[in-house]
Design a protein around this nucleic acid. Structure first.
Lengths: 144, 144
DNA sequence: TTCACATGTAATCATTCTGGCTACATGTCT
DNA sequence: AGACATGTAGCCAGAATGATTACATGTGAA
């Protein structure tokens, strides 16, 4: 199993919108860089818009960032594109046998442990911004 | 998306084997507590065995722990049951457009960021042992 | 107003993964 | 030999993903 690439595509979109300040970042343009279908991009754009990360308007070509890139963390994108529900990164088997000491307690014991792990992951994502991503890409470009 | 419940079931199995030291932990017995099919349990037992966490033998009923519970971390179980491949918790879209500065670099830029997040999660799992789980379950039992 | 074009969104489709289940080969002990 | 347990392979229904098509809605210029 893997976390949906919507997350990676979301990062790609935001980064490209920033680096394409002078041009128009339409869903078709973005789709060309990501190499997928414009409808897929529009769906993700809708999620980013709903979370207040970008501004898009029906009928008007192009998306713009709604915040400075230094204020957008990977965690913001991660939550925006809805790849993982709150406290549900790990799934726990339901219907354990209530007649067994382990069966009737395992759920409550495991849940906080899983939550802690998920929080650790999210904290890591929260420490990186789109600005970091943009900077890294520009550095990689220099060396080519 | 969620991480397969094989992970949670693996923890359940190890915990129950420990608390059932006096009895025989056959796949059918374990399945009864988890509330699933014995074949599912046997499949997971095979993974735990392959990783050196338990001892099972064909034809001989019952599984035993291969290590003290204080030496088995949730990370060991997580890796044993193969829910997530190395560096592949997050999926990244392939085939980005090489003619675009973002398209040709995004993969290399994102990968280490995702790896760091995955490592943070694994570190968290590595700090908890089955002993901790057993202790917590016994405490919860006391209060009933 | 009409037309070209962009976003918003629903529906369909093939693919993949999960968990439950059956069936049976293999191995062990009485 | 027979009872029973593990080790596997195979099948199934259900869920999620990403690609694609289609179309309603909205905007601005001719």
């Amino acid at each position: 199993m893997t976390i949906s690439s919507r997350f990676a595509v979301g990062i790609h979109i935001l980064t490209l919108i920033d680096l394409n300040k002078d041009g128009i970042s339409s869903s078709e343009y973005l789709a060309g860089s990501v190499n997928t279908n414009p409808a897929v991009i529009r769906k993700i754009m809708g999620m980013l818009k709903k979370s207040g990360l970008i501004e898009v308007h029906p009928g008007i070509a192009g998306a713009k960032l709604a915040k400075p890139i230094s204020d957008i963390t990977l965690l913001d994108v991660y939550k925006a594109v809805n790849v993982v529900q709150e406290k549900e990164l790990f799934s726990v088997h339901e219907n354990s046998n209530p007649d067994c000491p382990v069966g009737r307690n395992i759920h409550d014991t495991i849940l906080p442990l899983f939550s802690a792990a998920q929080l650790a992951l999210e904290k890591s994502l929260g420490s990186v911004t789109i600005e970091d991503v943009v900077r890294d890409i520009m550095e990689k470009e220099k060396c080519k």
